[in-house]
Design a protein around this nucleic acid. Sequence first.
DNA 1: TTATTTTATGCAAACGATTGTGGCATCCAA
DNA 2: TTGGATGCCACAATCGTTTGCATAAAATAA
Lengths: 349, 349
Amino acid sequence: MIPTLKDVAERAGVHPSTVSRVLQGKENLPISEKTRTSIFAIAKELNYQPNQLARAFRLKKTQTIGLIVPDISNPFFSGIARSIEICSRRKDYTVVLGNTDENQDREIRMINNLLSRGIDGLILAPVQDRSGHIKDLCNRNFPLVLIDRCFDELETNAVISDNEEAAFNAISYLAQAGHRRIGFISGRKNIYTIRKRFLGYQKGIKTFDLVDDSELVSDNGFTLESGYHSTRKILSLPKSPTALLISGNKITVGAMKAIFEKKLSIPDDISLIGFTDFIGSPYWVVPMTTITHPVKEMGEAAFNLLFNNMATKETVPHSKMMVATKLNIRGSVKNLALADFAANSFPQG
Amino acid sequence: MIPTLKDVAERAGVHPSTVSRVLQGKENLPISEKTRTSIFAIAKELNYQPNQLARAFRLKKTQTIGLIVPDISNPFFSGIARSIEICSRRKDYTVVLGNTDENQDREIRMINNLLSRGIDGLILAPVQDRSGHIKDLCNRNFPLVLIDRCFDELETNAVISDNEEAAFNAISYLAQAGHRRIGFISGRKNIYTIRKRFLGYQKGIKTFDLVDDSELVSDNGFTLESGYHSTRKILSLPKSPTALLISGNKITVGAMKAIFEKKLSIPDDISLIGFTDFIGSPYWVVPMTTITHPVKEMGEAAFNLLFNNMATKETVPHSKMMVATKLNIRGSVKNLALADFAANSFPQG
DNA sequence: TTATTTTATGCAAACGATTGTGGCATCCAA
DNA sequence: TTGGATGCCACAATCGTTTGCATAAAATAA
């Protein structure tokens, strides 16, 4: 059987509490060198491992954090997960994982589940249909860090990227390349990131005086299929856009499917900027111009925020951390300005 | 504060044990309808949630399983993770996650850690430098399922895909397309999957009487960089291959980088088959011909095996489950037979 | 020597749930 | 009226650790 404190204590001829104290390494406690070494020896001999379950129960501290994301198979979130797991391990924390599939009820059930299993803190990319349950957590002063998405109306810790600026920069880049009719394809606009991106998109439209047409905007889900259908619809518009700003890489793949089905080529017929970079982006049909989020850094920042929050009993001032994104200019955007110039230089007919 | 059994009991004027029994819904126990309804009402009013930590401690059952993979940010493993997480949730299990980064010591530490935290079972994609610790688990009859990789010498549950056949089929396909000099680029050959693939490769080489040259084989890691360097080396050979069979998608991306740096084009100058399909594979520079693993099914199978294993106290006969892979023929392989034919039909000079 | 401090350790309660055992009513049968 | 059966519930132990408090022995001071 697995040895317990009691087993070690019996063999060493001391009380379990003594063993506990010695093994905890409380230096300042008065323990004779003799018993100390004896206990260490016996613990080693028996290969004693403290029962963390009992320990967690007694201490009300599990050394475990929860990580809840919409979809762990999404490269963005699996990158975050990896980063968080590595940080956690360093600080002797374990991470338990949950997928919500963008389902609000599932998120709530999952949080309650993890809570009753005793996590010390939670990192969450919320679904954002509702926020009451998150507010409750805050009120209870439960260590919580939101990641990727946060609530403007809630005072929480959060690590987010500057989606508004990112989208604005993308539009700015497209505008400079001569695009005037730009489509915006995304998941659901109640999601924080999408809302901010849309804001950035709109700001860009206004700033550069581009075509403002609600038909160019589509948001109906995060799947490959939804990206496919949105794109098909937008491409069949009487006046279809010359460029697309696309959020989410499954959506992007769906969009490409639609584009190639229509025998269009990128960037000659249509330009593309993808909102998330991932491995392989440079090697797509055309090297994809994308916006990069500093995934590793975001995970680290989230864990560190959480760690500090867990360490201090008192209320910690909440901090929303905004990280900058990067526009990776590759080859999926055509410079219409140059093209127009060329076309005008050699007038037809 | 969070209400406990005791709180509910006091309010209901009964003993905690009674509350426990009622809330467990043991129908056959003699409990009066009056106390039963009263207890339910009060539990609901207080929003009583059983403390799963205490429960787990008492019952020695945490309703938690461990999932340890080399790298959760690898799409193959994150797909597996997602599938397993979904199955787990359905059966009221939670999954805790670990990355080994192909580091054997880290794997061992992680297993011990999860064990002392009380997981009910473990799904593991092992590093495979050593197997002693896994043998120990088996001897202790601990519920364990290996995934993606297993040990020929160990009797364990496992869900693996038929890598040998997959590689053989790929080589067969390349051979039929007229390729005679085929490179094999992979991670580390001590890994089960890679070993089997290499076996399939060799079998193919023999069967179709292709060029058997150890210089065409390279295995030095799972990273983008290692793929890059391996490919560079192989492409600079005096007699460089006409096709490459590549294991692992980070490696594949590295290979493409090397190929394009050399200004070679796919498939005209060099053909490619990738060993793992992932979202976007169809939309690469050239639609990638890949081997697909049934990720979702593998995850489900692994969970089900584990679940059965956890349910039965007695020793369950171990089963290794082998799933078939699929060769997705897209556009990254050139038919040299046709090309040669064409070349011969129109002799130059 | 006695009083006092220090050193080293034991004792027991506690965390929150589960479960075997046992006991007090009540009821029915003989 | 007594016996046993049955319905309903309480009691207490238990899981493995931790920790405040008590205490005995040893060391030091008076």
